[in-house]
Design a protein around this nucleic acid. Structure first.
Lengths: 339, 339
DNA sequence: GTTGGCACTCCCCGTCCTCGAGTGCCAATG
DNA sequence: CATTGGCACTCGAGGACGGGGAGTGCCAAC
């Protein structure tokens, strides 16, 4: 009974604080929620909640605000699933349906998610390592240069310029291309190494270094940790939370410009199909410890190929954000499935 | 004589204001610059400059700050070319040299420019319309779907999924591909329409709609106004100028997220090889009229293929920014030339 | 045209003070 | 023993006040 009410108080504090942005006091609380008890009782509960670390006061004689721990309890035990309206679902679906290629899908998704949540959205390209090769193309750029184009079954297209150790003719390029294609078509990128290992030896000695160079670039492109790409959008929404980041918007913006940082972030939450939340100090990136991350993985069926998420102030509408992230992840998975 | 000194005063005001961020008064001016006259004389000059609209005072009994017109005069008549140190040139050169493909060149350039100028950098991908087709590839994704990959001589690679009106065999795809390639290789994208016009008629009637669909997508990809792509970086630097954007960072960030807006911006300054400056209200985008744009075009030889630029507060170091933009544009042109 | 002098204007900034929301504690109550 | 009303207390927000100072405009003298 008592425990129940305390949790209800915590929930009320979180909700009020999220919507008003101001420390919430005992009196305002009884007025806005039908708690059925007096403000003095609430004060006692609040004292207990503060004792346990769920809420804090910015200074004596101010209202309470939730701590990271308080938000954590709210997310874990209190926030019900907030289903999206069918209108919202339809909007998502129609917005993503018009995409013409993978780049388009990614950029539409990120804009959509940023718009729904009014926060910063992150969407990761399907990982190459988890994709299979659909097609390879080698285009001769000059005597000793070629362009390698790789098309994965997730829709990703990567290109790299290869500097060849020796001049190679158009005809040679065509032979190399056709052999590499037959060796790698349908192969998952992570298995590519063994699949093409013996290929150079099949060619004339003079050509072998060139073939090896092309293969090296191919493997680099697929295995390199830099193969991961993330797009982000809605940075402007950060400015909306000037009260939170007032003094130091800069480090947050800087962190968000670093691909490596974003990868680390999404890596933490994209391992599961459920939506995962990292609150404040739980955030692995130091400059983002004033923010929360809501994210999840997406992919074809059970094999997750990338992550999608949202970064915002710890004071955010968790149920709504979680629902939006989940919905977008579902649509992304569906689009991948269709290929 | 008089005119000369007045201009010197304007220059001094701009320089001081840019470096101190504070309205500059007559006394401080004589102290910091060897003007050889007393502060009273400067006051007279300032009154004249204010009369002519070059400077203004935020309120009575405060120092003066340059107006947009003042900056314009500074840029046009006063700012000498500020050569980059050889160390800087070397840094630029080595930073851009490591790029592995066009995407890499673009993202490195934008980061570099943002870092040098400590402002927001914009780099536009080489326009497809100005590029020639180097290679075309058509990959069959299913009975009625194909992926069209287009490689331009500027290094751009674009891909599009094509929905075919009728099932097409692997063999058909190969024939279409080879015919389209021979019809379009080396052709500038803007001339592509006539070059491929008669191609569908060369195929069997049953295949013609599919060929037409592929060609339609091809033309769409190259002529569509959306073919233009711009990358931006250094958004975090905006937060540094909190004094300027304090109240409304949001519209600026929003404007910078709109590709269309960025295109309009760069379009204004990328028509020339000289560096062009748009100051404050001269800026075509309403939400950016509190900012200045420094930009230029780049390309192979005389034919410009895209733009590069920097957005920052009107109070910026114009000579330095102009030098940096010019340097990066030169390196980009050089890299394109090498292909 | 230039200069020194002088009165004047405001912004900045620190101080002081009041107001009010909110708290903690306590004694009373069912 | 949880709940409640009462009460003294705390502390930040915000407004009023006032001195200090940087800067200006103007004027008379050179």
């Amino acid at each position: 009974m008592l425990e129940d009410r305390r949790l209800a108080v915590l929930r009320a504090i979180v909700e009020d604080y999220v919507s008003t942005r101001e420390p919430v006091g005992s009196k305002a609380l009884v007025e806005r929620h039908r708690l059925g008890v007096s403000s003095a009782t609430i004060r006692n509960d609040m004292a207990a909640l503060e004792e346990e670390g769920y809420i804090a006061q910015p200074h004596t004689s101010a209202g309470r605000i939730p701590t990271d721990l308080g938000y954590r309890a709210f997310v874990d035990r209190l926030s019900g699933v907030k289903p999206m309206s069918s209108a919202e679902r339809r909007a998502i679906s129609s917005f993503l349906a018009g995409a013409v290629d993978l780049d388009d899908v990614m950029s539409r998704s990120v804009r959509l998610l940023a718009q729904i949540t009014r926060q910063v959205a992150l969407v990761q390209y399907p990982s190459l390592v988890q994709s299979a090769i659909l097609h390879l193309e080698i285009v001769r750029l000059g005597e000793t240069r070629a362009l390698l184009v790789l098309i994965a079954d997730t829709g990703r297209v990567e290109q790299r310029v290869v500097d060849l150790p020796a001049p190679v003719s158009d005809d040679d390029i065509a032979r190399i291309r056709s052999r590499l294609l037959s060796a790698s078509a349908g192969v998952t990128c992570s298995d590519l190494g063994p699949a093409v290992e013996g290929v150079p030896a099949e060619f004339e000695p003079g050509l072998r270094p060139s073939v090896a160079a092309i293969i090296a670039t191919l493997l680099e492109t697929t295995l390199d940790t830099e193969e991961q790409r993330i797009v982000l959008g809605g940075t402007a929404n950060l400015a909306r939370y000037r009260d939170v980041f007032s003094t130091n918007l800069e480090p947050v913006l800087e962190a968000l410009e670093e691909q490596v940082v974003l990868l680390r972030l999404l890596g933490e939450v994209s391992a599961a199909t459920e939506v995962t939340v990292m609150i404040g100090h739980e955030n692995p990136v130091e400059d983002l410890q004033g923010t929360s991350l809501v994210g999840t993985g997406y992919g074809r069926g059970e094999s997750l190929v990338a992550g999608v998420g949202v970064v915002g102030p710890t004071r955010m509408d968790y149920p709504g954000t979680m629902a939006a992230v989940r919905a977008v992840a579902e649509y992304l998975s569906r689009i991948l499935d269709e290929n």
